[in-house]
Design a protein around this nucleic acid. Structure first.
Length: 573
DNA sequence: GCCGTTTTCGGCCCGACTGTTTTCAGTCG
């Protein structure tokens, strides 16, 4: 059984949880968590690295010890230190760490004093009012635990970026109407454009925070006030989204924005740089002793630690700090770089608009071209096109292109990849298209090896151009299908195939990590909206955001090219 | 457990809020 990076990361995170319960050295715990992240973000499988004899201790945050443990896990599937720790604690105990308000100290107190071993035990003890009597606890804390159990459960809920954005906009507008508020900005993972957002971090500047916080907790969407101080307050909205509001004076705007944008791992790493320079960074500024050196803008903060500005999308401590120091930061692709969209549907299959409506909408966005990619026949539920209907559509496009000014429609098709790896339409019609966009729409549950080989076989077809929504995930609804992404990427590179970043808000597929894997392998990408109506063409910025998070530059993305160069880039080798 | 222009030991980011607390521990981000 192959060991996946996610398995190793999960073992290390679990080890860290148990070490926390044990009261181990916090830095040792952090080392396990950092290693878990490094492995989870790795562009190749750790297993293949181990097998090829690579030195894992070269990886950031992984030394000789953890490199040895990783090798052990790859070879045996087991992690002795984890197994040892698991013997020391009941299996359900770490789940208690996910209950709001409970950390390692309180969990251990509950365990040793009341024999609470899992969430069910906790629930019973709360109901029996046993917890209030414990030292360091109280009736109030007991009530908070009960409340956390009832309302928030133990599973973290994340929101699709677009949903969080829809909630943030009216809230930000409302906040900016509060007396004394100058700037309002959404920071956190929303600003970093992560595909999902766990909570909203909003920053305001004002002379006095207290009245702003008092107003904030009265926002009409607030379901619950979690904390309420003078410079910071946390609420739960009716939507279930948690919002942290922080207030700082204008002179600290840049430092606070930088601080609250995160990520935490990025901030920790940059602060460590500051410490080496004898500086201290906090949300109020950059300080040498008591002297403030910077804070009004983010650029000032970066300058003080000797770094150029790092775009929010890159701030994940995935090498951006090292790249910044070396002057190697990527010049990230922007929405303005995009010259066309390579995945769009019309009424012919399951879209809402006609060819000419889609063309007009694309031209209004300033595009040079738009690929019409209605579904192929296998997707009957979407009224997929057979050979005859596709030929007819091509004729329609040819005729329309003669009339259109400023935009060219490209003849294409979203061709189903059949279970056998064959494409859903014969080569005789595929060769007449400007390009193909190929995707998996059924049999999601094949084992990784078979799914991978299905896709690679499809890529063997000389008319295969772009692998659309390569993992098939639907955020919050459907997990990505099992896939050996490195093999897919390698196969794409060898055959001159491209991969898509699908910009639909519930897909965002490839994700940021996979984008980076593809880029590092030299595979070109297309950022496409998979529009099923004219309005969807506006999702481009979501795909671009994931591309930016994956370090992509305009030169990595084919639909930044003018039409002539695009045609060249689509040619298979 | 990692790491090194502080290099094989001794550091490791920093502050706000809560609740129980007479000065701080725990949790969170």
């Amino acid at each position: 059984m192959a060991v996946h990076n996610a398995d190793i990361a999960s073992m290390f995170n679990r080890t860290a949880d148990l070490l926390e319960l044990q009261g181990a050295n916090p830095f040792r715990i952090r080392a396990y968590r950092r290693a878990a992240r490094t492995i989870a973000d790795l562009p190749q499988s750790a297993a293949s690295l181990v097998e090829s004899g690579a030195d894992l201790s070269e990886l950031p945050g992984i030394g000789d010890d953890l490199a040895g443990k990783i090798a052990g896990i790859v070879k045996t599937g087991r992690c002795p230190i984890l197994e040892q720790l698991e013997k020391e604690f009941p299996a359900g105990l770490t789940e208690l760490l996910n209950v709001g308000g409970l950390g390692p100290k309180r969990v251990m107190a509950l365990h040793t004093s009341l024999g609470i071993d899992n969430v069910d035990d906790l629930r019973r003890a709360v109901r029996a009012e046993k917890i209030r009597a414990l030292k360091g606890f109280s009736e109030k804390i007991e009530q908070k635990i009960l409340h956390a159990l009832e309302t928030r459960g133990t599973q973290e809920k994340r929101f699709k970026w677009i949903v969080a954005d829809e909630i943030a906009r009216p809230l930000a507008a409302w906040l900016s109407g509060i007396a004394g508020v100058k700037k309002v900005v959404v920071a956190g993972s929303c600003r970093r454009m992560k595909d999902t957002v766990g909570d909203l971090d909003i920053l305001v500047t004002c002379a006095k925070g207290s009245p702003v916080m008092d107003r904030f907790v009265k926002y009409e969407e607030v379901a619950e006030i979690i904390s309420h101080g003078t410079t910071r307050a946390t609420v739960l909205l009716r939507s279930g989204l948690q919002v942290d509001l922080r207030a700082v004076p204008g002179i600290s705007y840049g430092a606070a924005l930088y601080y609250f944008t995160g990520s935490k791992a990025h901030n920790v790493a940059v602060r460590a740089l500051a410490v080496k320079r004898g500086l201290k960074i906090n949300e109020y500024g950059v300080f040498k002793g008591d002297r403030r050196l910077a804070g009004r803008t983010e650029e000032e903060v970066f300058r003080q630690v000797g770094l150029p500005y790092i775009e929010p999308e890159l701030r994940e401590n995935r090498g951006e700090i090292e790249a910044a120091r070396a002057g190697n930061l990527p010049r990230l692709v922007t929405v303005e770089d995009m010259r066309g969209d390579l995945h769009a549907h019309t009424k012919a299959s399951d879209g809402r608009n006609s060819l000419s409506e889609m063309a007009a909408a694309a031209r209004a966005l300033g595009y040079e071209y738009l690929a019409i990619t209605d579904h192929s026949r296998h997707l009957t539920i979407a009224n997929g096109l057979d050979e005859k209907r596709l030929r007819k559509q091509c004729e329609d496009i040819d005729r329309l292109n003669e009339k259109l000014k400023g935009i060219t429609l490209l003849k294409s098709c979203e061709v189903d990849i059949l279970e056998s790896g064959k494409l859903d339409l014969p080569d005789s019609v595929l060769k007449e298209l400007d390009l193909t966009v190929c995707s998996v729409h059924y049999k999601f549950d094949l084992p990784a090896v078979r799914q991978t080989e299905r896709i690679i076989r499809a890529m063997d077809n000389p008319y295969f151009n772009i692998l659309a929504h390569p993992t098939g995930r639907l955020i919050g609804e459907r997990e990505p299908y099992a896939l050996e992404m490195e093999r897919i990427v390698r196969a794409a590179k060898e055959r001159g195939c491209l991969m898509e970043i699908n910009a639909q808000p519930d897909r965002l597929d490839l994700n940021d990590i996979h984008c980076r894997i593809a880029k590092d392998a030299g595979v070109k990408l297309a950022i496409s909206t998979d529009a099923h109506g004219t309005a969807h063409l506006g999702y481009m910025h979501l795909g671009v955001a994931q591309a930016r998070r994956g370090w992509l530059e305009a030169k990595d993305v084919v639909n930044t090219l003018p039409l002539k160069a695009l045609r060249q880039a689509l040619k298979r080798r």
